[in-house]
């Protein structure tokens, strides 16, 4: 067996404690078990040393995306990050995501993401579909499925410099929702023309494809290459075709209609 048999031993953690007004990294030390993940350590500290430590978690199986935090300065799911994969000779720092307002300790207010999601019209079947079962190719399914793996951990939003550094939350939906719109726009039976939203309210033009989002995705979604760049291409195709521009027209997308505003 190639299982890494690692002794537990004592580890030091530095966990960010505080709220919007003030806070600091606080040192903790605990005995660990083999295979322990950062979330185990944080919860053990909560149980035995800091009972009011605020942390958001649910499944502890890397499927719900609740326990996102910045571990040693990098966004990670705490439940999927093994202590023994982090350098043993230094304390492990655990801090909240920075792109969203802090509530307390490791918990941030991610409600903005839910507001953005509400603005995106749901899948709407084309009106010209024949009666009976949906017929869809496996290849289309695979393409959409990559995007639909998203567990909404919002770590891509956290590292997106448009949101994190420039705080342009009112002008760009962020990588998570580019992925969401890609899954809808690439659905072969979707009947909405989503280009205007992607380009205008969604603000895809602000993304300058630094791929930070792709790097932190725990689901390995190729956010930039497979979602954002193809959507940018679709926007260009629909709006900036030189020939159509001369004719003073936009490209029409067959089977797709503009969403009701």
């Amino acid at each position: 067996m190639s299982e890494t048999l690692t002794a537990g031993g004592t580890r030091k953690l530095q966990i960010w404690r505080g709220d919007l007004t003030s806070g600091e990294l606080v040192d903790y030390e605990l005995e660990t078990e083999p295979g322990m993940v950062v979330l185990d350590a944080v919860l053990e500290i909560q149980r035995s040393q800091a009972p009011d430590l605020a942390v958001r978690w649910n499944c502890k199986a890397a499927k719900c995306g609740s326990c996102s935090a910045e571990v040693n300065g990098r966004p990670r799911l705490m439940c999927k990050t093994r202590l023994d994969h982090l350098p043993a000779d230094q304390p492990i720092t655990v801090e909240p995501l920075r792109a969203f307002p802090l509530i307390r300790d490791l918990v941030t207010d991610v409600s903005w993401n839910y507001e953005v999601n509400k603005k995106i019209p749901p899948f709407t079947p084309r009106e010209d579909l024949p009666e009976g079962d949906f017929l869809i190719d496996q290849a289309d399914t695979d393409r959409m499925s990559e995007f639909r793996k998203c567990i909404e951990c919002f770590m891509c939003q956290d590292v997106c410099h448009i949101l994190r550094d420039h705080r342009l939350h009112d002008r760009y939906y962020g990588p998570r929702f580019m992925v969401r719109m890609a899954s809808l726009d690439m659905h072969p039976l979707d009947g909405l023309d989503r280009i205007d939203q992607i380009a205008d309210d969604g603000g895809i033009g602000l993304c300058n494809i630094t791929k930070c989002c792709t790097e932190v995705c725990p689901e390995g979604i190729h956010i930039t290459d497979n979602a954002i760049i193809p959507l940018k291409e679709r926007v260009v195709d629909a709006r900036y075709d030189p020939l159509l521009k001369i004719l003073g027209r936009n490209r029409r997308r067959p089977g797709k209609k503009k969403p009701a505003v």
Partner: peptide, 19 residues
């Protein structure tokens, strides 16, 4: 199951493109 698909769920397909 069919209703869910009509609401946008995406499931693996058979060779004849059904669920």
């Amino acid at each position: 199951a069919r209703e869910l698909e009509h609401w946008g769920a995406v499931f693996d397909r058979t060779p004849d493109r059904r669920m």
